[in-house]
């Protein structure tokens, strides 16, 4: 199978997902419960991508004692909550990670 054709298939299913409601949604009215629930898609999704990526293969063993990654993500979380600024959170998180790795925690 041609690799390019596989990528085109991947692109089509991705575009269909993105276009579903934006392009065809005006004819469909979402139920009120579904509309309310959409506010929770973002927090649930971003947490679901972030948590396994931070804990990695060792999983819960990285929590006690906290791995440099766990320490750094907590610091980054406080930074973004305090400043609402993504660049500050990135700087705080990466510098914390390097420092925590350097001191060998």
């Amino acid at each position: 199978m041609n690799t390019l054709l596989i990528f085109i298939g991947c692109g089509l299913v991705t575009y269909f997902s993105r276009a579903s409601f934006i392009l065809f949604g005006d004819r469909v009215k979402l139920p009120e419960t579904v509309q309310r629930s959409l506010a929770y898609v973002a927090p649930a999704t971003f947490a679901a991508i972030m948590v396994p990526a931070v804990l990695g293969d060792d999983g819960l063993a990285n929590l006690v004692p906290p791995s440099p990654q766990v320490g750094a993500i907590v610091i980054a979380g406080f930074a973004i909550a305090k400043t609402r600024n993504m660049a500050v959170a990135l700087g705080a998180g990466m510098i914390s990670l390097w420092l925590l790795q350097w001191v060998g925690l």
Binding site: A42, M50, A76, A81, G93, M94, L97
Partner: peptide, 12 residues
């Protein structure tokens, strides 16, 4: 590691 930091920020 900047990727999970990004998602943490988006989540908050």
């Amino acid at each position: 590691f900047s990727v999970p930091i990004l998602f943490m920020g988006l989540m908050v």
